[in-house]
Nucleic acid binder design. Structure first.
Length: 192
DNA sequence: CTTGTGATCAAA
DNA sequence: TTGATCACAAGG
């Protein structure tokens, strides 16, 4: 039986757009009192820090965004629209508030609807108590696994308020995955 | 298209 | 203290 290796922290010590690609295909183990469940990351979005108007940290360092200023490999979990928990992996270096939103996962050892950033966290019982945790040990463990053969790129979802940043190609997904939260735009190149 | 739902932050 | 806003999902 093949035992996956822990993801090295260096994979996250870089700009969020690079880390977002690195995270595709990686496994995330989530420990509960009695169980460990594993998912494979199939869709991510990068938030690039204070100058990125779609990033919460563009409003500066506040109680809410504090965890994004932490070390790479820290979690940033928050509640949006009063009901959905968003799970992010902090990247770059301490003091530079970049993060990768995990938008969709493939559940490897259990059954659940996980195709969306609020659905998979609900299925795994993730909430704000999981904010500011180390993701390389403890309740969460990120593991190395092969990257997808083909990666789709598109603009981020739900950030229309962010001006020019709304169109930046910072959403990444595994081509062909049935777990993607929404379709990716068809690129002109695909029309041959 | 609307609605539910609550944290957050700037304004007052 | 209020009110607008929001990195969503489900239902017309």
């Amino acid at each position: 039986m093949h035992v996956p290796k822990p993801l090295p922290r260096e994979a996250l010590s870089r700009d969020a757009d690079v880390a977002a690609r690195n995270l595709l295909g990686c496994h995330l183990e989530v420990r509960d009192s009695a169980t460990v469940r594993t998912v494979r990351i199939v869709e991510t979005e990068a938030y690039l820090g204070e100058m990125d108007l779609a990033c919460h940290a563009s409003k500066g360092r506040t109680a809410r965004t504090e965890s994004m200023y932490g070390a790479p490999g820290t979690s940033y979990v928050y509640l949006v629209y009063g009901m959905h928990h968003m799970f992010n992996v902090v990247t770059s270096r301490e003091g530079d508030p970049q993060a990768v939103l995990i938008r969709a996962v493939d559940p490897l050892d259990f059954e659940a609807r996980t195709q969306g950033p609020g659905l998979w966290t609900a299925a795994m019982g993730i909430d704000v108590s999981d904010d500011r945790q180390d993701l390389l040990g403890g309740r969460f463990r990120l593991l190395q696994a092969p990257a997808p053969a083909s990666i789709l790129v598109g603009p981020r979802i739900g950030v229309d308020y962010a001006g020019a940043w709304a169109d930046a190609p910072l959403r990444f997904g595994e081509a062909g995955s049935p777990f993607l939260s929404k379709p990716f735009p068809v690129l002109p190149d695909d029309v041959t």
